[in-house]
Amino acid sequence: MCHILVIFDRINLRVNMKLKYLIISFLILTLTYSCGQKQENVIAIDVLLTLPQDVYNQAVALNKSVLENNPNNFTLDAQHIPHITLIQAYVNESDVPEIEKVLEGLYETIENETLLVDKLQYNKGQEASFASMGIEKSEPLMRLHEKVIKILEPFSLSNGSQASYVQNEDGTPIDDFTFAYVPKFVSDHSYENYNPHISLGVADTSVLDSLETHKFRPTKFMAPTLALYQLGNYGTARKLLWESK
Rank of each mutant, 00 (worst) to 15 (best):
Y165P: 10
Y191L: 10
K239Q: 15
L115I: 13
S244C: 07
N233C: 08
P71I: 06
E108C: 00
S158Y: 09
L62E: 06
T109Y: 00
Y165S: 07
L200T: 03
N159I: 06
S34T: 07
I24Q: 14
L157A: 06
T109H: 01
M133Q: 13
K20Q: 15
Q162L: 09
V6E: 09
Y191T: 12
I110W: 00
V166N: 08
L13P: 00
V182F: 04
V182W: 11
S206P: 01
V166Y: 05
N41D: 04
Q88F: 02
I43L: 02
Q58G: 12
S34Y: 15
L27Q: 02
Q53D: 11
T172N: 01
K101L: 08
H80F: 02
P52C: 07
R10M: 11
N63V: 13
D188K: 15
V6P: 00
L13H: 05
P82A: 11
I198Q: 04
E243I: 13
N73V: 09
A237E: 14
E243R: 12
I28M: 12
Q37N: 01
K101A: 08
G36V: 10
L115G: 02
R14V: 09
P97V: 14
H83W: 07
G134M: 05
V96Y: 14
L231N: 11
Y33V: 07
N195V: 07
R143I: 01
P82G: 08
I23Y: 13
L86A: 01
L13W: 10
P154G: 04
P183E: 07
L29D: 10
L141A: 01
T85Y: 04
N16Y: 02
G232Q: 06
Q230D: 12
Y33E: 03
T32K: 04
Y56D: 03
L200W: 00
D118A: 04
H80I: 00
N168A: 05
Q39H: 08
E68A: 14
L231R: 08
A128T: 05
L48Q: 15
P224V: 01
S187N: 10
D46N: 12
